[in-house]
Design a protein around this nucleic acid. Structure first.
Lengths: 356, 356
DNA sequence: GTGAAAGCGCTAACAA
DNA sequence: TTGTTAGCGCTTTCAC
């Protein structure tokens, strides 16, 4: 701390404004002047004060990313991609964890994440029924994930219904007929769209299209989407003596638990039961057997979301219609659905893409 | 944006200073005044401007956390714990990724992470040989991890040597005699302490103490510590036709790859080969077989590191001697070392703790 | 216990 | 192309 623009200006024998122009790469600065200023900056080790800049310009250069928990692999990988996308645009990222707590999610939506220029928000508890909360948000906001639809804000998500349908069709193509789904939302009373509902809908669509019977007993409600809960749901399926030859886990964390519980019970994957997840987390490549999944295009999601947020920030308070972006997806076939033989370079075979 | 302290002061019919006192919980404010101010704040929806506060007070209320990549499970879980620990102290966390890039790590050490009050830095490339870089750092800094020792800054780490030794002793106690280690640092030319060296040293200590022969061929250099590299190192061990009955992976990400490669090769864990990792990431509970590991006390590390950083921030530039904190560790015995029978509530049996 | 004045470091708006 | 002026919103200092 200590060296200010004034100091640099004094040494370079220019005004503070000129130093500012140089620092901010403004066009109309004479090369000679620029060089002199830059040397003074280097000499004094000057570094701009972001608080002052933020106060004056109204921009902090920091965006917020709010997720349930970083320890969930999907959010860690999402954060990784978001931080990288933000860095390209010279933005820093403050990461906040709502911890699956409804109050904290509401608080984040009300106040943002400390003082940032805008927020990327992936809620776990807030749902479509909380849309009105979004209407009163007075800062740039882009929603991520499946929980909130048709709101007044930008939204980046994926083709949940068709991706889920493709996942289940992949199982059907592998000869499976009795397919369970793990991760439906536990609260079905309202009948409103829930995160899992979209994916469950895709599951049902696939069954219907294939003329397969639809057995409610094979739809297991699970929350939150942690491996232990995936394992628990699978044990319940087994304990209930239900007949099934495949499990569709609504995300990969659940699927890890599913694989584990099947292993504990002595069921062989994929021979006895095929398993497919959703998210294509890195670890899915290294499980035994490796995990088939739906790749939702995480980098595309992060890149798009940051881009949208930056645009919102630049537009200021000028109203623009909310946008909805659905990322591409790919089915990644690995051993858990019998899709790929054991092999060293097993990153998975991409089976299909869709923009439906 | 819009509502300022002035506005609140006007409505509450006090001075801006009094509003400031209320907002900052200063003691000497009359209850009546406080109530009036608080009501005005609520009425107007006033929220303090952090840039202005930062500019005036010299504190931003934001700390930085720099890691190689969030997609590595250990760092995601570390970030989770750090963000939680910081939140307790009303601090936000900007997360930066150096991506295993030496230049970026150096840049972070030179400039910090944007404008923050201090930095928690877990480097991947910077090592003990870069200690001099640390001497010129002019902001509060706490180093994390194993790469830099004896530097002029605070350092939070774990008992690497004794923890590794305990891990290998756990393998020996399980009857293993030909124990390979995966993750030694590839660059051994300088002979200086390297991250892996401490853990390798513990490995060697355990062999010596147990009077077991030490076979250099069983020490595999691997970097970075990604699953695919753990798998590759394991394939090399197998291809070389080396005789071994256990593998100590220097972290769990490597261990996931090790399990995978052993599975591909048809080796049964733990019957043919026992495996133990290091870090105790959550996923280790759900692999098949579940992964034994060394639990380094992540929460303790995060809590301690944030606490130290806060102290440094409060002490300002007053010099204090650098501190070194080594967290407790526990050996978590799971199926991969034959330590625990298959079972539903498999969080692992804690075998030993040490403060050595 | 509260208020008035000053200024943190920077950039927007304008002037030269 | 460069300089001058003003003030962003807050907290520090000191007076009352």
């Amino acid at each position: 701390m200590g060296v200010t623009m004034r100091d640099v200006a004094l040494v370079a024998r220019v005004s503070a404004k000129t130093v500012s122009n140089v620092v901010n790469d403004h066009p109309h600065v004479h090369p000679t002047t620029r060089a002199r200023v830059q040397q003074a900056i280097a000499e004094l080790g000057y570094r701009p004060n972001h608080s002052a800049r933020g106060l004056r310009s109204g921009r902090t250069g920091v965006i917020g990313l709010a997720v349930p928990e970083m320890r969930q692999a999907y959010f860690a990988e999402l954060a990784d991609a978001v931080i990288a996308a933000a860095a390209k645009r010279n933005l820093s990222v403050i990461v906040g964890q709502a911890g699956g707590d409804r109050e904290r999610e509401t608080a984040i939506l009300t106040n943002g994440l400390r003082q940032t220029d805008g927020l990327l928000f992936s809620p776990e508890r807030l749902g479509t029924e909380d849309r009105d909360l979004l209407s009163v948000v007075d800062f740039p906001l882009v929603m991520l994930g499946e929980r909130i639809f048709g709101g007044p804000t930008d939204h980046v998500t994926m083709h949940n219904v068709s991706a889920s349908r493709a996942a289940v069709e992949h199982l059907i193509a592998a000869g499976r007929r009795r397919i369970a789904v793990v991760g439906a939302h536990p609260d079905q009373r309202t009948g409103q769209l829930r995160p899992s509902d979209l994916r469950v809908q895709g599951y049902r669509d696939a069954l219907v299209a294939a003329d397969l019977p639809h057995d409610r007993g094979l739809e297991r409600a699970v929350a939150p989407w942690h491996p232990e809960n995936g394992a628990e749901a699978t044990r319940q399926l087994l304990d209930a003596g239900l007949d099934f030859d495949a499990i569709f886990a609504l995300n990969d964390s659940l699927a890890l638990g599913v694989l584990r519980a099947l292993g504990e019970a002595g069921r062989v994957v994929p021979d006895d039961v095929a398993v497919i997840g959703f998210d294509n987390i890195t670890n899915g490549q290294f499980t035994v057997p490796s995990l088939s999944s739906v790749d939702p295009g995480r980098d595309e999601i992060a890149e798009t979301a940051v881009g949208m947020l930056v645009e919102r920030i630049e537009w200021g308070s000028t109203w623009r219609p909310p946008r909805l972006h659905k990322a591409e997806f790919h089915i990644v076939a690995r051993e858990s659905t019998g899709g790929t033989p054991v092999g060293p370079a097993d990153t998975g075979a991409s089976l299909s893409a869709s923009t439906s």
